[in-house]
C-alpha cells in the first residue's frame, strides 16, 4: 500500500461553500500601514464567518480616505461611493427599496462628524438597518491633514497647529439619539473588531461603530490622541466580547456566571465578560456615564457600549410590505382603471 502524496490543503469554506477569497475586493490604494485596511480585513473575516451572502450586501460611502474602502472588500457586492457626508440618505433609499439588502456603510470622522453629521443623526433616529463604521483618525487625510471634528482638544497637526476646539464623540451622540447598537473599537485590536462586526451583522437596525484608526501619514505623532501609541496606551476594553451565531449555538456553550448575554432577533447571542465594575451594556444611562467619565480621564473605552435589539427599524415605521419593494410587479404597483375612475368621480 502506498501513501498518497497529500495535496495542498483546500482553503476553508463557510456554510455557503465560500472561501475567504470570495469576500475580498480590489487592492487597497491607501497608505501602507493605514488602520483602515485592518478594519477592511475584519469586515471580510466577519462576513466570511457569518456566512453573509456577499451579493446581497450594499456597500455605501461618502468622500474621504475611509470612503474609498468599500472598493477593497466584497467584490461580489454592489457599491455606491456617493457624495461627502450624505451617504446615510443614499443608504436609506436603498434600504427601503430592497429590505433584504445587508447594508454596510463606511465613513470617516470628517464625513460623519462635520459635513454629514445631520444625515447621520437622522439615519440613527430612523433606525435604518446598516452597519455604519466610522474610521476615526481625527484628521482630513485626503485633503492632506486638516483637523476634523473628532480631533482632541490640544492635539497638534504635523505642521504645528493646535486644535483649540472640543471634539464630538460619535458614540455619546449615537447614544443620545437612541441608537440600538453603539460600539467603539481600535484598528489595532482585530479580535475585538471581529466580535463587534459579527454582532452588528446580526443586529437589525443602525449600528454605529466608531473605530479609532490612526492616520499614519498626517496624525500619527505622539501628541495626537489618535496615534497608534496613544490609542494603544489609552485603550481600555470594557469587556471581553464573545459572539455566537445562532446556528452555532448547539455546539457552543454560552459562558455563564459573571458574563451577560444579549440575544439578537435572529437568535444569535453576544456575551460580555465584564472587565470594569458594574458595566451593563443594556443600560443606556450607564453607558453614557462611563463614556463621559472615560473622556475626562483621556481613555478610549472600547467594546460594545450599548445594545438594544427591540427598537423598531425604518421598515416597521414606514409600514411597507414584507416583500422587498423592488420585487413588486406592475400588477401590484399600478392601480386599475376602476381606481382612476373613482378618483375622477370624486373631483367632479
Amino acid at each position: 500500500m502506498t501513501t498518497a502524496t497529500p495535496s495542498a490543503p483546500a482553503a476553508p469554506t463557510n456554510r455557503l461553500g465560500l472561501t475567504k477569497q470570495d469576500y475580498v475586493g480590489s487592492k487597497s490604494t491607501l497608505c501602507a500601514g493605514c488602520g483602515h485596511d485592518s478594519i477592511t480585513a475584519q469586515l471580510i473575516n466577519a462576513a466570511f464567518e457569518m456566512n453573509i451572502e456577499a451579493y446581497k450586501v450594499g456597500k455605501y460611502s461618502g468622500i474621504g480616505c475611509s470612503s474609498k474602502t468599500p472598493a477593497y472588500f466584497f467584490n461580489q457586492a454592489w457599491g455606491f461611493n456617493s457624495v461627502h457626508g450624505r451617504m446615510p440618505s443614499v443608504a436609506t433609499g436603498a434600504a427601503l427599496a430592497n429590505r433584504e439588502l445587508v447594508n454596510i456603510g463606511v465613513s470617516g470622522d470628517g464625513d460623519s462628524m462635520s459635513i454629514g453629521i445631520g444625515q447621520l443623526m437622522h439615519m440613527i433616529r430612523r433606525n435604518v438597518p446598516i452597519i455604519y463604521i466610522i474610521e476615526d483618525n481625527g484628521v482630513y487625510g485626503l485633503t492632506k491633514g486638516q483637523f476634523s471634528a473628532t480631533a482632541d482638544l490640544g492635539s497638534v497637526l504635523k505642521h504645528g497647529t493646535v486644535n483649540e476646539l472640543p471634539p464630538i464623540d460619535p458614540c455619546t451622540l449615537a447614544l443620545e439619539l437612541g441608537c440600538g447598537f453603539v460600539a467603539r473599537s481600535f484598528s489595532g485590536d482585530p479580535k475585538q473588531m471581529n466580535a463587534i462586526m459579527k454582532a452588528a451583522m446580526a443586529h437589525n437596525g443602525t449600528c454605529i461603530i466608531d473605530v479609532i484608526s490612526p492616520c499614519v501619514t498626517f496624525n500619527n505623532h505622539d501628541s495626537s490622541t489618535k496615534s497608534y501609541k496613544n490609542a494603544k496606551d489609552h485603550d481600555f476594553p470594557l469587556h471581553e466580547l464573545g459572539f455566537v451565531q445562532f446556528n452555532e449555538l448547539e455546539q457552543v456553550e454560552i459562558p455563564a456566571g459573571e458574563s451577560k448575554v444579549v440575544t439578537f432577533p435572529d437568535g444569535s447571542k453576544v456575551s460580555f465578560r465584564t472587565l470594569r465594575d458594574d458595566y451593563d451594556p443594556t443600560d443606556r444611562f450607564g453607558a453614557m456615564k462611563i463614556l463621559h467619565e472615560g473622556a475626562e480621564k483621556g481613555e478610549f473605552l472600547t467594546g460594545l457600549l450599548y445594545v438594544d435589539t427591540s427598537k423598531p427599524n425604518i421598515h416597521a415605521t414606514t409600514h411597507i410590505v414584507d416583500t422587498p419593494l423592488v420585487h413588486l410587479n406592475q400588477a401590484t404597483l399600478k392601480p386599475g382603471k376602476d381606481v382612476l375612475a373613482k378618483c375622477m368621480d370624486e373631483l367632479m
Binding site: 456617493s82 443614499v90 436609506t92 436603498a94
Partner: peptide
C-alpha cells in the same frame, strides 16, 4: 438616488 440605484 439610493432607491433608484437599488431598482425602485
Amino acid at each position: 438616488f439610493g432607491a433608484g440605484w437599488a431598482g425602485a
